[in-house]
Computed example of a mutant assay.
Amino acid sequence: MGTPELALLCLPCAGASATMYLRWRRLVPQWLRIVPVELPGRGARMGEDFVEDFDALVARLCTEQAAALQGRFALFGHSMGALLAWGIARRLHDERRALPRALLVSGSAAPSCRDPDRFADRNDDRALIADLRRQGGTPEEAFASEELMRITLDVLAADYRICESFGQRERPPLPLPIHVFAGRDDDIDAARVEAWSREATHAVTLDWFDGGHFFLRHGEGAFLEALSRRIAPGAVVPGGRHAAPSLV
């Protein structure tokens, strides 16, 4: 009997489209089906208006992805995508709908520990370009193309407004496992990353990687191996309320 398939819905980071996950389809095990989730205003949905409110975007994604949010599925997001993945899991729980087998988050502070000043003074092209260069995830050809840079900056500005609209509030932990991935050289404070341990009643794992905010791109092979291992059928999840962090 074959390994049962698991659909992994992948939410993009700020300024990006779902195409950032397409190459994963040929790099992960056959039992893992990568489902890139495109947001309005970019990629294949470029003709649509941006949705710049966090709660409104989460509600819309839950409706649009209703068919995919059933059966054997998990949620993954990087940076802003991690917050959206958490928001989707939160909404599914609140509506008493089927929950993902696991929530996987990368390059993100926990929802309860986000930096309120993270997006201050990021309201013009010069500041946005500086942010893109600092994080190191944008290919140089994008900076060299006026058209590509205009598209990227418009998407990034809209996504930063999504993040700014997120309202931090105390919420009970989710009844599912959370797997956290982070870069050792990311500028997100480690304590903010480790605070994901308070977001679940099940075990929370934490894998650290060499690299900055886009460690998952620069060390893609090691990252995807760890991601697959965490959600593989029959994988042993450390017991208890909080799992001990593991190092990769």
Rank of each mutant, 00 (worst) to 15 (best):
A243T: 10
R122L: 06
L176C: 12
G81E: 06
E48P: 01
D49M: 09
V193K: 07
A102M: 07
M149K: 02
A66H: 15
W86E: 10
P173M: 08
A130S: 11
E52R: 11
E52A: 09
A190S: 14
L39P: 06
A98N: 08
P177K: 15
D207C: 09
A44T: 10
G234E: 05
D185A: 15
P173Q: 02
S145P: 00
L61G: 05
A67G: 06
L61I: 08
A82E: 07
C163W: 01
A14P: 15
F166H: 10
P238F: 00
S197L: 11
G107A: 09
R171D: 03
I151M: 09
G137E: 14
M1N: 10
G219P: 01
G221A: 11
S145F: 04
G234D: 05
A142H: 14
T3G: 06
G211E: 05
S108H: 10
E48F: 04
G47S: 04
R217N: 14
R126F: 06
E95F: 06
S112A: 14
A7T: 11
E194Q: 15
A7P: 00
R101G: 13
A144T: 04
E5N: 11
L27Q: 14
V237Q: 06
S17I: 04
G2R: 13
D49A: 12
C13I: 02
A66Y: 07
A182L: 04
H78F: 01
S165V: 03
Q70F: 02
Q30H: 12
Y160G: 07
G77L: 07
V37F: 04
A82H: 12
S145Y: 03
V51C: 14
L57Q: 05
Q70N: 04
A98H: 11
V248I: 09
